[in-house]
Nucleic acid binder design. Structure first.
Lengths: 223, 223
DNA sequence: CAGAATTGTGAGAAAATCATGAAAAAAGAA
DNA sequence: TTCTTTTTTCATGATTTTCTCACAATTCTG
């Protein structure tokens, strides 16, 4: 479990880092939103603790940009309790919120709660009649099983796990094919084609993002 | 008999635990659905007593996730009788239901009833004409006994116990052969082959999951 | 609208994966 | 031990999947 701690106060970062290490979390630090974004792009971060008040780019902005890249759970920190309202109204998928000063114990507890909540427990994804059940390793359309090739399945799963995020061909290749794939970009296109064909009427969920790649687009009225 | 008691109220858990211990049940506690799920994954739980009303993940959700992992009998608890309807309509295989407050005596009685009911079924799995009777350590096809080798039997049993779950070759090896098996992955294939041959027309239940392994696929219209 | 850039698609070669049979190795029974 | 059964390994061919490429269709730009 690698946690990114983003706060402009070094002392705060140090304290959090100490406690996280004691719980066997790996910790990466960033003292501003820009660095945080860069780190998220490069490293495999599992969770983010982000301060709201930071110079230049605040926590909201940072999270908004990060969420465009990857869907990583975020716990927000704030000095003032009043900001809670603002946070609630915030459209981003923030997983939890704490006001400073906080007890380290509580921080750990909340982190663990997030971990459990977001862990790959979610093995069944449903989008109207389209269901991907990862436990059964099966995709069904209106209850009828669809035969996908392994690559098609993995591709769909990755798209769904990162739904509503535009994924570049390169991203798809490294994450679905593996970092060691040195083939043609357009291979993705071919697989998207066959996948779409297999999804029948639900092909609409896979949208093309011109000049970039693809996206699984599904807006739930609750989210 | 190991029973998992899942309720957010410690007092309730304590009471149930006391009565169960008196009846020589082993008791494991969880105060929320997440913990329950984790425990089920790790420990060999024979039965679950689950409260419906819990913070974060309610009993329904917890049971749904647990049933995906393992087919363990569940007795549900609820503070309100009105929820009974909801429960009846609930598609999960819940074995019994009680409303709070309940007499511990009744709880034990119901548990024992479940034990009886499921013990019978647990040692005997039926899929149309294919029957595996673990007590007799025997597999029959349309009433006729099939001679399986020990490995074939264990493999079939494991597949059936985890029916509708895609099992990797590695998973099969560690769980059927043992964690200390350091042989070829493909050994599984050979045994699946002989097992399929022995299952005759019911070979169809064992499906190949390309790039993964195998799965015992049997969809019951009630589940 | 023409031309350029980009994506969609069909076909086929290459590669990966699985089912199977055979045979060696190991385990168990007599 | 010797014989039998079971388990494992391995090579082969069959099948499926993956990938590339060429061309068609579409979208964008000026």
């Amino acid at each position: 479990m690698k946690v990114l701690v983003c706060d402009d106060e070094q002392l705060i970062r140090e304290v959090i880092k100490e406690y996280l290490k004691r719980e066997n979390y790996e910790v990466v630090e960033a003292n501003n939103g820009y660095d945080a974004l860069e780190i998220v792009k490069k490293e495999n971060i599992d969770m983010i603790i982000m301060d709201i008040m930071m110079p230049k780019m605040d926590g909201y902005e940072a999270v908004r940009k990060i969420k465009k890249e990857k869907d990583i759970p975020v716990l927000m920190l704030s000095a003032r309790a009043e900001e809670y309202d603002k946070l609630l109204g915030f459209e981003l998928g923030i997983d939890d919120y704490m006001t400073k000063p906080f007890s380290p114990k509580e921080l750990i507890a909340r982190l663990k709660a997030i971990t459990k909540r977001t862990e790959k427990n979610e093995s069944q994804y449903t989008f109207e009649g389209l269901v991907l059940d990862d436990t059964a390793h099966e995709v069904t359309i209106d209850g009828k099983k669809v035969n996908l090739t392994p690559k098609e399945y993995e591709l769909l799963k990755y798209l769904i796990e990162n739904k509503n995020i535009a994924l570049s061909r390169e991203q798809l290749l490294t994450n679905v094919w593996g970092y060691d794939f040195y083939g043609d970009d357009r291979t993705v296109d071919t697989h998207v084609k066959t996948l779409r064909n297999n999804l029948g009427k639900y092909r609409k969920y896979i949208t093309t993002i011109r000049k970039i790649g693809y996206k699984f687009e599904y807006k739930n009225e609750n989210e």
